[in-house]
Nucleic acid binder design. Structure first.
Lengths: 221, 221
DNA sequence: GTCTATATGTAGATAGAC
DNA sequence: GTCTATCTACATATAGAC
């Protein structure tokens, strides 16, 4: 096939370029998730993607830009999942139950971390790795915190007597607990003696635990 | 002062050597805590300690050995704190309350993370960083899990009807929440709008949250 | 768009002078 | 015990051929 000058956007070269770019981002996502930003070299990403060194720089820019692109690529989808669930809850006749709000925040992440696309599973591990690292927070807080604030508004409506500050702390602890199911699977396995199940398998227990925490804090305020 | 052959263990050279070794370990502890194993070079540790490159290798061995030494150096003290508190609770007439058990596990860490020796604060950050990283768990689980098992035995006595597996999960989520107060201070600050207080300032809220979680899980089992 | 070649710096580790 | 000097490998990044 020769170049198609009538439809340059979908010609062979452009398609190949897009596919290469995706391969590079996927490889970076897998490696950054497994070992972290500093442990991974651009060379290893190139090898993992099956391209040469210059190709990674061409599509990804500097290592830092590449990392940011990997993070940003899936933010919109995760935020949309959470907002859709929140929207359904808010559109009912009665104000939503706290349990449903916690569920709506936790389940999209746990689902991506457990099911389907291996790249999404890698992304979930990557998020778990960097959200608990103050070095990266400024870069990703802007992506995720607005949705967290929307949930906090709804949570505040469900617990009007509890100070906002206490609810913020409770949500922070909840998110930390959620992420630990993805980031600390070896520790869970070591303590329990069995290999850790998928994060989604702990969903009920996690939601029960965190809701119990929210309720205990509401009771004391 | 010349060499004292009557007391070689305390002569000038040996003392100087020990002090240098401590300076190297302290510098490594601070830097590994702040940026992680992979981001820190031996050269930066040497500069931070005010010694030359060879001195770090002489006292610390390979980079990996140095890291392991830094981790191991304070394990015994933290374990002893927790065991002492557990011993007091178990020596009473009545079996200990779950709240006191959770308190006994969390407070020693939070105290070291908030008070006193800046090196202990750095160590607390380092632990928070690597406990949520499966790459390092095999190296540190052996140090910390035996004490966690002793606490789980006591927790099981306080909640005999709850399956051990559920209690293990609850303790894991509790530890993750505890560590997040140290590792995710920027996220807490970003969500709440205020700078995050010291980890110890969240102690009551944390214990209330986690105890509520334990109770909710016990109720459902 | 793709890749080779390379510029420039830094990594970990150690041999050997003092 | 301390430090200099150095080996070898690998890092990021980019200029320029195709």
């Amino acid at each position: 096939m020769t170049e198609n000058i009538e439809d340059p956007v979908t010609d062979g070269r452009v398609l190949r370029g897009e596919a290469t770019r995706e391969r590079v981002l996927d490889a970076a996502e897998r490696l950054f998730a497994a070992e972290g930003f500093d442990a991974i070299s651009i060379r290893r990403i190139a090898a993992e993607a099956g391209v040469t060194l210059g190709v990674v720089s061409f599509h990804g820019g500097t290592k830092h830009q590449l990392f940011a692109t990997v993070i940003e690529r899936r933010v919109a989808a995760l935020n949309a999942d959470r907002r859709a669930r929140l929207g359904v809850l808010l559109s009912g006749d009665k104000p939503p139950e706290l349990r449903d709000l916690v569920d709506a925040y936790l389940t999209p992440y746990l689902t991506h971390a457990s099911r389907g696309d291996p790249q999404w599973r890698a992304y979930a591990r990557l998020i778990a790795r960097i959200v608990s690292d103050d070095r990266w927070y400024p870069e990703i807080g802007n992506f995720y915190d607005p949705v967290a604030q929307e949930f906090l508004d709804a949570i505040q409506s469900a617990r009007p007597a509890t100070p906002r500050k206490e609810l913020v702390t409770a949500l922070t602890l909840t998110v930390a607990a959620m992420l630990s199911l993805v980031a600390s699977r070896a520790r869970i396995a070591g303590l329990s003696g069995d290999p850790a199940g998928e994060p989604l398998a702990y969903r009920e227990t996690l939601i029960t635990f965190c809701l119990g925490g929210f309720d205990a804090i509401s009771r004391e305020s």
